[in-house]
Write a protein that binds this DNA or RNA. Sequence first.
DNA 1: GCCGCCAGGATTGTCGACAATCTCAGGCGA
DNA 2: TCGCCTGAGATTGTCGACAATCCTGGCGGC
Lengths: 228, 228
Amino acid sequence: MLDQDITLADQIFTRMRREIVAGQLPPGSKMSEPELARRYGISRGPLREALRRLESSSLVVRRPNVGARVVELSSEHLLDLYYLREALEGLAARLAAERMGDAEIAELQDLIARHERQVAQDHGLAYYQSEGDLDFHYCIVRGSHNARLQDLLANDLYHLVRMYRCQFAMSGPRAPTALREHAQIVDAIAARDGELAEILMRRHIRASRQQVEKRLNGELATPPPLTH
Amino acid sequence: MLDQDITLADQIFTRMRREIVAGQLPPGSKMSEPELARRYGISRGPLREALRRLESSSLVVRRPNVGARVVELSSEHLLDLYYLREALEGLAARLAAERMGDAEIAELQDLIARHERQVAQDHGLAYYQSEGDLDFHYCIVRGSHNARLQDLLANDLYHLVRMYRCQFAMSGPRAPTALREHAQIVDAIAARDGELAEILMRRHIRASRQQVEKRLNGELATPPPLTH
DNA sequence: GCCGCCAGGATTGTCGACAATCTCAGGCGA
DNA sequence: TCGCCTGAGATTGTCGACAATCCTGGCGGC
């Protein structure tokens, strides 16, 4: 039909990933192969393949002869993730400043301008928690022209980040600040200053991490990680 | 029997990964499922699972309805890999300096001492191209106490690095230099100087990358990438 | 002579069934 | 009453077979 060239296992993989990230399949819940196969109307073959791919995306954990469960979220792993992003996206920003074409940079500037209009309109409430933030980071990563970096961040880490955001109900008051930092990074890239772009991006992500750490320490009156 | 708790697909996965890295399954070669299943004496089910895991390790590429091939090596992807390692292992070194226990550091120092004795004995010929180099880096990564970073480097990237080393016949005259740089990094970690450890590690990997770039540009009379 | 079309063969994707393994409840003994 | 062992039940791992899809070679038309 439209894009039926995609294999059945791929469809189920994408669908289950979306449901896990959104929380419809809650963390820690057991994923019975026969049950899921009935639920999605497929056989266990493609389903197992989808589970294997979800495992390599770190969205489910499998134990041999026991089964698969949706990954359990922990504040420790969330911080691990931020450290990784700081290093990887810092690299991406540096490479983007060195490698992006002029057209790509213009597109990026346009994206930032759209975000600014949207934030001004919404009073900056729904920027950070929406897809807008990840959109920006995704553009930078794509601009790095490093296939492996792109694959790693876009196919694995960002889905995990979105999962944490949904589950931990993270939004925070960083929306206007984040947007300003984004604009600074774009300026550095437009100026072809890779070193500065890397520094700003690392600082940007470190600030997010530090805010999460504060929240986890209970220093901020924001939604707790989860209700157990 | 010994460690039969491992599932059949896991055994095949590990075995095929070893053969791909060593070059027994040459890059670009087609991996027919019936043929491989006969060859390893298993069915296509576990074999497909092993192929899927090899794909997520970037050792094979699969196209729907077409099949799997051993990944093609390219100098571009090799450089991508070095950029990633520079960022990730720099992070690992910083975290290691902050988080390693005293016992772990003593172990690391012991490893370096053993390497020094070995290099003195072998006149430094076979250090860089052996597993010794990756052993060192693996210890640092383990010391980062960041599960995701550890998983990423040890389970995926290092196998790719070893594959490139085997296929490109990379050794180079960097053996004594590399060992000296390793010792400096260990000193920084022992001094709990995370910032310095990161700088030194990044410089260490960048130097390797630059040497590879020179070689790819034909400025060094060393084995060419591959004979086509 | 070159390009497009078509059938043959092989390969991959998918399915249902059987065997091996784990989990959990219940009973026995100390 | 607590702990260990055992057996039923369910689940995962593995296998072989069928259907859908793709590559290869040859043929006909321009």
